[in-house]
Design a protein around this nucleic acid. Sequence first.
RNA 1: UCCGGUGUGGCGCAAUGGUAGCGCACUCGACUGUUAAUCGAGUUGUUACUGGUUCGAGUCCAGUCACCGGAGCCA
Length: 463
Amino acid sequence: MKRRKIKDILGQGKEQAEIVIMGWVRTRRDSKGGFSFLEISDGSCLKNLQVVADHNIDSFDSISEKLQTGSCVGITGKLVQSPGKGQSVELQAKSIEVYGEADPNQYPLQKKHHSFEFLREISHLRPRTNTFGAVMRVRNRLSYSIHKFFQDQGFVYLHTPIITTNDCEGAGEMFQVTTLKPDSIPVVDGKVDYTQDFFGEKTCLTVSGQLEGEVYALALSEIYTFGPTFRAENSNTSRHLSEFWMVEPEMAFYDLEDDMNLAEDFLHYLFKDVLEHCSEDLEFLNKQIDKTILERHRNITENEFERITYTDAINILEKLNKNFTYSVEWGCNLQSEHERYLSEEVFKKAVIIYDYPEEIKPFYMKVNGNGKTVRAMDVLLPKLGEIIGGSQREDDYGSLLKRMQSKKLNSEDYDWYLDLRRFGSAPHSGFGLGFERLVQFVTGMENIRDVIPFPRTPKHARF
RNA sequence: UCCGGUGUGGCGCAAUGGUAGCGCACUCGACUGUUAAUCGAGUUGUUACUGGUUCGAGUCCAGUCACCGGAGCCA
């Protein structure tokens, strides 16, 4: 007989003469009246299915001691209305098969609370907890709805390379990819001879698919990437990973305003979709992890984003006369404390800041007519800070070349990128969204290491 | 990388420089259509590591490592 998923069984709530379920025992409560209650989870939803196991069923005595928290079972039985509180239906077991035991003296997960620090040490077992199940189901839904949002509008999903020779300037330190042996690296004139390396030149893991995305946007009009990204920064914070997933749409014929509109529509869509399809998990997280997440989601979906220029943002911050750790003046980078103050205290909602000073932004952003600012924008969310960074790209060959020279970049390394401006250039824009930060904001999880299955951070790549 | 904090049974935590203890888990027993069940009893320790001060160190000092929080870098 075909296995039924607990999500479907509980969703229908109808009695059934005979069904089969498979899953892991979360807890067991014995009754000396001659039967046991087993809570079974198969990960299809947050809730467990209660199984009533009469001690008279075949071979119960031989499997009884194997039915412990963490063990894996297959159960055939009759689904009936439950006389007890807490569940509408329950399964009366006819037969139970134990697939895998879990010795209670050695199984590290207990019924009660575990700290996330401890669970991080057992990354291979933590998905069996309620919280990680909920977080990963939400992560999955967000991932699906990102694709749905773009696909429904005719964007092309583009696979950009993981291994690259491009340094997307300003994006951070890169991991080098090499097959050269550390103890015998070929050197010519005091420098490493990369012609002997696997690719014949220095290669790294990508820090952004943006430049490759531009190539295809200038042919297919609208594309997006959604894939892993790598940064070798020695960042030890609750918001940084060495390996994370990034969403990067890139659109021909979009100016900065179109770009901001897309970013706002995108976030509105994602939050509405996840509220609709993950309500059970989100209510659980709202109760257990962060009692403000549902309220924060409503704040995103029900309000238009505030849009102000960088210059106006600086004026607002200066007039506040607040004692920030970092002082505010035109030309400075907005610090975390400034961004959070604007979204949390001044506007109390999502804010888009645009038209940043040219000096503090990368070479590929389009310079405004005043020559002082570039068409860049950041979307800031209360509590989280920057979630999206984007810009209209410089589409004029001469301006781009000049900008590269003033930033002391070697234009020969970017000949292909410059070619895009020599042959059929077009106004175009794009943005990037750090996927784990989105999952963090949606689930209320404080540490980014707890919203990705296997976190990679400095000194940590186990599992 | 910088600043601050924390490392004590499997997990969460306590202990004025003076006998290392509690809760949970676990084991056994009692009881019950139970719901993180409840009640009783019991088992569990190189106090992160290395060195120092002291009659005596979980506690004080120095160093190392790990983890957490904040900052920078950034998404």
